[in-house]
């Protein structure tokens, strides 16, 4: 019998790394209101990660806690996709990436919530959250893509940078409770109309899109991110406050 642990761990790691990247925007967003919105979205992602880590920890039955999973694993043990670990210090990149990720998360969580399984409860709650993230991202992609020449150009550049990372989310995984390959049409059905309305052209995919995150092969960006995120927990093992 296949175990859902690797798949759920990947889903959780996507959410945790996304939460950490969104945290960077706090105090840096274009307006105070967007600051709050991005913080809310980051906290939603953090909550999803916690819920999934708790499920994974119980399924593993190895005595690891959600904190152990978040703070005491090295980069090679993380299973997030490369899309989410790269820096996103440009607002257009932030919202384009959110569009791609949320379109995928909506489909994954909806599928998990529709069937019996250990992650059903977490997924049922998460699907409403990521539906809002998708809407938020779509609103911004529409306004920036179909905005001024400058905002269009920056959004086009952001799409060019993020788009090659979409295939990794949709790689087949026959052992997963939800095979991501089966979500391809649904995810594209959410993303493509937004891009079209935003007057953005879908960039061509490279012959060999970047991949490897699900197998633990990451960029140095994840090492930097984890070093910062984990430093307090590692310097003071077991500390509480």
């Amino acid at each position: 019998m296949s175990t859902p642990v690797p798949f759920l761990l990947g889903l959780a790691d996507d959410a945790l790394v996304t939460a950490q990247r969104l945290g960077w925007w706090i105090s840096r967003a274009p307006e105070l209101e967007e600051d709050v919105a991005l913080a809310n979205i980051g906290l939603d992602q953090l909550g999803q990660a916690r819920g999934l880590y708790a499920v994974v920890a119980e399924l593993e039955g190895a005595g690891r806690t959600e904190d152990d999973l978040a703070y005491l694993r090295g980069p090679a043990e993380f299973r997030n996709v490369l899309l989410v670990e790269r820096p996103q210090e440009d607002f257009a990149v932030c919202v384009v990436r959110m569009l791609l990720l949320a379109a995928w998360q909506v489909e994954v969580y909806a599928a998990l919530a529709a069937r019996e399984g250990p992650a059903r409860g977490v997924a049922a709650k998460a699907v409403k959250e990521v539906a809002y993230h998708l809407d938020h991202a779509a609103q911004w992609v529409l306004r920036l893509g179909d905005g001024t020449p400058l905002s269009h150009e920056r959004t086009r550049a952001a799409l060019e940078a993020e788009w090659p990372h979409l295939p990794e989310l949709l790689e087949p995984d026959a052992t997963a409770p939800v095979d991501p390959a089966t979500l391809r049409e649904a995810v594209l059905g959410r993303v493509l109309p937004v891009l079209e309305q935003a007057t953005l052209t879908v960039p061509p995919l490279p012959a060999a899109p970047p991949t490897g995150g699900r197998a633990g092969h990451h960029t140095e960006h994840l090492t930097d991110l984890l070093a910062q995120m984990q430093q307090v927990a590692r310097a003071h093992p077991g500390a509480t406050w």
Binding site: L32, E33, V36, A37, Q139
Partner: peptide
């Protein structure tokens, strides 16, 4: 009150700022 570029985003910002 809050700032927003248009009505749709004003509604969404209000959701994030005032109904958390």
């Amino acid at each position: 009150s809050l700032h927003a570029p248009d009505a749709d985003l004003a509604l969404r910002n209000a959701r994030d700022v005032y109904t958390r």
